[in-house]
């Protein structure tokens, strides 16, 4: 193999098209500076937000997590005492972790399965798709609200609509939200009901899959399940991954529904004591802001580890078609 010297290359190749040189003079530099200024100007609101509303309070919270701050008096430095108490002697902290893991463990897969199933059903060229899509999306807009939490509490209460309907079939109802066995599943059901956001993302992904793949598979004799299993599922794994991460982070931070349904207690018998709810109790009911700050940092770490784990597993199950 011979290589051409630069001069040879020059002589054998077509003359290179004349490039317009970017002026590097003073006026060009001024333009660049001006553009930078404009960029920073547009970024300013975001920068102010990330620094002032997120960054500084986070730093303050980190500091407070090493203090005994109780709002009504100045904070005193206590080192790692809050963290030691959390893992060493707080029974309810451990309880809240278990409740949260159960909640996340049920919520995330159920929302994924439910939203994917509805998205697949809606992706079959139904008439009025936009209307159905909007209708299914509405719960995810209002599901985390206090109003819906209160409604859920009434619907699943001892004298709620659910028991009324069960009564028509001669079945005895119960206070679903006031039972240690059923309170958490009721909240999980409320969360699953807010599947709309994930569904819309799945629907967008499904519509990106070329129809020709399905036609070819059909010609080869693949049935509906095989087409879903071998074409749809692999091609939407990046979106499943994306939704999983989002749902995981949101579920770990769930608060409103458990707060409203249990009246802020996390009961009955701590069965709905989600981590964020316990954190809230410590901060705003017992005024232990330092302790609550430590809890917040443990939560941040747990979410980080959970998300990192999902990212690590993604190399085994997420299929990017271009790789």
């Amino acid at each position: 193999m011979t290589t051409l010297a630069p001069d040879d290359a020059k002589s054998t190749s077509k003359p290179a098209p004349r490039r317009r040189e970017i002026p590097q003079n003073r006026s060009g530099s001024a333009l660049k500076q001006s553009e930078n200024r404009a960029a920073y100007l547009f970024l300013t609101p975001w920068l102010l937000g990330i620094v002032g509303i997120t960054g500084l309070p986070m730093l303050a919270s980190l500091y407070l997590s090493f203090t005994d701050y109780r709002v009504t008096a100045a904070p005193n430095w206590v080192g790692l005492e809050n963290y030691a108490t959390l893992f060493g002697g707080d029974r309810r902290f451990i309880s809240s972790i278990w409740v949260t893991l159960k909640y996340v463990g049920w919520s995330v897969p159920l929302v994924l399965i439910f939203s994917l199933a509805i998205a697949v059903a809606l992706n079959r060229g139904l008439k009025g798709l936009a209307i159905y899509r909007s209708l299914f999306y509405v719960p995810s807009l209002i599901g985390a609200s206090v109003g819906i939490g209160l409604l859920w509490k009434e619907v699943f209460g001892a004298r709620g609509v659910v028991n009324e309907i069960l009564g028509w079939f001669g079945m005895a109802g119960r206070g679903w939200v006031n039972s240690p066995t059923f309170a958490l599943p009721t909240i999980v059901a409320l969360n699953v009901w807010t599947f709309g956001a994930s569904m819309v993302i799945f629907l967008a992904a499904l519509r990106q899959i070329p129809e020709s793949y399905y036609e070819a598979a059909s010609i080869d004799g693949a049935n509906a399940w095989q087409r879903f299993r071998r074409i749809t599922l692999p091609l939407i794994t990046p979106v499943i991954f994306f939704n999983t991460v989002l749902l995981l982070i949101n579920s770990f931070q769930s608060f409103t529904q458990a707060f409203v349904v249990s009246g802020g207690s996390g009961g009955p018998v701590d069965s709905t004591l989600l981590y964020s709810l316990y954190l809230y109790q410590k901060a705003f009911q017992q005024l232990q802001m330092g302790y609550a700050s430590a809890m917040a940092w443990v939560l941040l770490l747990a979410i980080g580890i959970g998300t990192a784990f999902v990212f690590w597993t993604s190399k085994y199950w997420v299929f990017y078609g271009d790789r």
């Binding site: 240690p180 207690s265 009961g267 018998v269 109790q281 017992q286």
Partner: peptide, 23 residues
């Protein structure tokens, strides 16, 4: 005492709930 009422309300309710539900 400081936080006494809040603490009594919180802890008594939780303990008796556990009794009434058989936990």
């Amino acid at each position: 005492p400081p936080s006494g009422y809040q603490a009594l309300d919180d802890t008594l309710g939780r303990a008796y709930e556990a009794v009434a539900f058989g936990s």
